Every structure is written in C-alpha cells, then in structure tokens.
Computed example of a mutant assay.
Amino acid sequence: MIYLDNHATTACDPRVVAAMLPYFSTNYGNPGSPHALGQQAAEAVARAREQVAALLKAEAAEIVFTSGATEANNLAIIGAALQHESAGGTRRRIVTSVIEHKSVLEPCEYLATRGWEVIRLPVDSHGFVQWDHAERLIDESTLLVTLQAANSEIGTIQDIRSMAKLAHRHGALLHCDAAQAVGKISMNIFDWPVDLLSLSAHKFYGPKGVGALYIRGGGEDQALTPLMRGGSQEYGLRPGTVPVPLIVGMGVAAEVAGNELTIEQQRIWLLRDRLEKEILKAIPTATVNGDLKHRLPHNSSITFRGVEAEALMANLSTVALSTGAACESGSLDPSRVLLAIGRTHDDAFCTVRMGLGRFTTVEEAQRASKEIIDAVQFLRTLLA
C-alpha cells in the first residue's frame, strides 16, 4: 500500500519503537515509585520531557504530557476559562476560526453553553484568517484566542506570530493547536510567542495515545484549572499513571524530528511538488486548494471536478489517501474547510487530501500519481 494519509497519522519510526520496547517489559516501573525501577522510569520521563521541549526551544518544565492534542486542546481552552472564572476575571470572549479542528471548536462550544461568547473568524480563499475581522473582534473582553498552526486539509500555515502579538496587545492569551505543524515545519516559542501550544506524537512518527501541552512559564504556574482529578502527576494538571513507554517514544520522535527536519522537509516538499505537477499536467482541470507558498510541505489538497472523491478512492487499488480530516470521516456533509474557503458543495465532494511522509519514496510517489491519473480518467470516461 502506498500510504498518503500522513495527516491522519504517521508510521511509528523504527528508532522510536526500539526506544520504547524496554519500558514495556524490562524497565517497567511506575515513575511515582521510590525504588530503583521507579526512578529509572522517572528519569526516562524527564529525559523525554527535555527532548520534546528542545523541539520547541522551550524549557522542560513547560511541557505537560497528555493523551494527545485533543486532550491538550481541551485542557488549554476549558482550563484557561475555568481558571479565569475561579479568579473572578471578567473577560468572557473566546476567539477562534471557522476551520479549526473539532477538538478546538467543541470545547469552545461547551464554553458557549456556560455563557462565554465564542467568535469564529472567517478565512479567505487561501485559508488565512481574515485579519480585519481579527483586529476588530479581539479586544479587552477577550480571554483567549485559539488558532491552528496549519490546517489538516489544505495545509495553510497561519501567521501565528502576528496573531500572538495582536492577542497580547489586548491582554489575551494565544493558544495554538500545532498538531499538524510540529515536526513538519521549523517552529519554536521564540518565533511563535504563544502562551499555550498543543502537539501529538503520532503526527510526527511517534506512538498514538500521547501528546503534550506547552505552557509558557511552566505547569506549576497554575494558569489552568485541571479537567480531571485524582493525582498530582504532570503538575496536577493531568492525573493518572504516566504512560512511560509512550512518553519515551514521543521524546525520541521529537529528537529525530528536530535533527532531521531541514533535510526531510526539503525532500518531501520536492516530492510533493513533483507529484502535483504530474497530476496537473495530465489533468489540467484539477485545482490545488490552499495557499501554494505557505502550506505544509507534505500537504496536497486537489479537486478533480466531476469525479467524486469516494468513487476515486474506491478505484485506487494501492494508494491510501482521504477526503479530509480523520475526525470528520463519518460525516456525510461536504468539508466545512473547503466551504469556508469558497469551494462549492460539488467541488468539496470532488476533493482528496494527500499527505506524503518520511517513508514515502520517489518510486511510490510516481506510482501513486499514475494510479490517481488513470482512475480519474477512467471515471470521467464512464461519466462522458
């Protein structure tokens, strides 16, 4: 199978698997235990925390491990709001965008049921937040602005630095869902002066089931109210036995991503561009969605007008791709991201998303482009 769905998840890097294995069977201690096995586990978690922090150019104390970006997003958004309420704060506005992941939009909607004002900023035809709306709607009543680093469907990379400056100018916090961006593009908390940032290991060749929330200043500052109770782990923000093997895997994945980012980014970028060029040459009516300059290097969202995406995927025997975000896969509705950037319902239903990755070869990309071209041309012949 030629795997082109690296937005949904990535294969666990063999180096990550090798690092994790001893912590399942040999070094299996609980890091909260005082004996030698427990302390070995605690040291492994501390090392992984440093590795994840290094990827963001952050401090180890600023990393709180979670089960993934979904939990990190919930902790950041709801935790900040509850903490503000408990402190007697008067800000009641949350600002986000219309193309955020469901794990951002649904916590925002939950807060709306508690009386918070939630504003979704519109985006332009490339997927960028419309700046005039942001400048008008982010004000002194805003507690939190939550904006994704890059979109999981069209790959557009937002201007997080400018949004952070705008939020801070009005005394608001800036949370960034960076699940799709971490390990794929160069980023750090100095260039992106965010207050909170979510990431997930399985998006950058680590294991599923573990992620992290970066908290500027550290988890001990109690800037967030925990969503769960029952333990003091992770500065009291995420109670429960620490999943040592998964955290070790995330640490190694972060270290590998940091060491190989520049070379990997360039290789995948060129491979993606070649794949698109071949497809567009054979099918000139196809169109690429998103911003062609400021998008994730592995991302390609292509609309094949007149060919439904589901039919196209059914006619691909060896290529695995998708129509959009995995969390939306059960929906019969057209992509809300594509509709938000001005695509029609028909075009949205004729769009596929391809995500190349670390293990995608030149030969695989060539085979994939041929199979996609053949399938589109075959389906168009049937409809002629």
Rank of each mutant, 00 (worst) to 15 (best):
L338E: 09
R367Q: 08
A348Q: 12
H345R: 15
T344I: 09
G355N: 05
S331D: 12
T361L: 14
E364M: 06
G330M: 11
G342S: 08
A365K: 05
P334V: 14
D347C: 06
D347Y: 02
I341W: 03
A368K: 00
K370Y: 01
V337H: 05
R367D: 01
D347V: 03
G355T: 01
L356R: 10
T360A: 04
G330D: 12
S335L: 07
F349C: 08
G357Q: 05
V337R: 05
M354P: 00
D347M: 12
F359H: 12
G342E: 11
D333I: 06
S329H: 08
R336W: 11
S329Q: 05
S331H: 11
E363D: 14
R353F: 01
F359D: 05
Q366D: 04
V337M: 11
H345E: 15
I341N: 07
G342F: 08
V337E: 12
A368C: 02
R367S: 02
T344R: 10
M354G: 00
D346Y: 11
S331T: 13
L356W: 06
A348L: 09
V362P: 02
E363A: 09
K370N: 07
G355E: 04
F349I: 03
S369E: 01
R336M: 05
V352C: 07
L338N: 03
R353V: 09
R367P: 04
R336V: 02
A340S: 10
T361N: 15
L338H: 04
D347F: 05
A368N: 03
L332R: 15
G342Y: 09
T361H: 12
G330R: 12
T360P: 01
F349V: 11
R336H: 10
R343F: 13
